[in-house]
Design a protein around this nucleic acid. Structure first.
Lengths: 115, 115
DNA sequence: GATTCGTTTCCATATTTCTAGAAATATCGA
DNA sequence: TCGATATTTCTAGAAATATGGAAACGAATC
């Protein structure tokens, strides 16, 4: 089984997102945008015990899809959009064997692409 | 914890992808395009025992990211690109609180979007 | 209707992941 | 330095997931 670097990265990003709490956290961070959110704010908004949240945040960090920065006593988490791009590219790599197919691909309906 | 329909769908798609074998299978199907691949072909290409592969294929089907069709004795699997679009939209919903931010989003570098 | 082929289901086992309280760590203000 | 605040690490038990051989199944062929 070939487990190259790229697939390990994609796998850890996907595993990071594939959990109820973490998916909620990530979407919250997407919505928060560049300002991000402190761990405590996330815990409060989603009503998750801090130790559980910390477990999940470290998964998201490990998965490379959030960025972390200490700010005083707080620790700020931010969604990493470029990692999302990378993940998508990997998933759709060599789509349709490079044949000029008409499969719609993109984040929004109007973002279609021949691949 | 709000577990609505959309988040359950996204979660099952993500869990489907978040496994080494299944990620490989999905990418193989993406590359195969609209023709898809028979279960046996996948098993052979990836060298996975048929019972294990069947377990994983049913996960991918359950996750809604592949389509299935019987064709004679074979069972053909195909990547479901529209499900991928839906997943992406959900993940990036209300990005940056609707503020005109400049976060790059899309499957490929040139597919950027203000969200 | 018996046989072969492709695939799935069943099963027990092995492994991974999740949970949250308690304790530890780091930062700040008085 | 002390106390309050914010967060992480440690822990072990519970729950979920992965594995692959054997048996069962359905569709085609003889």
């Amino acid at each position: 089984m070939e487990t190259n670097r790229q697939s390990r990265i994609a796998l850890s990003a996907l595993s990071a997102l594939a959990q109820e709490h973490r998916l909620e956290v990530f979407r919250l961070l997407v919505q928060a945008g560049p300002d991000g959110l402190a761990a405590g704010d996330i815990a409060e908004k989603l009503d998750i015990p801090s130790s559980s949240l910390s477990f999940h945040l470290s998964h998201l960090k490990q998965g490379g899809i959030v960025e972390v920065e200490r700010q005083g006593r707080s620790i700020i988490y931010r969604a990493d959009f470029s990692a999302m791009n990378g993940l998508m590219s990997y998933l759709l790599e060599n789509c349709c064997e490079g044949a000029g197919c008409n499969v719609a691909v993109g984040a929004e309906p109007h973002l279609e692409k021949e691949c």
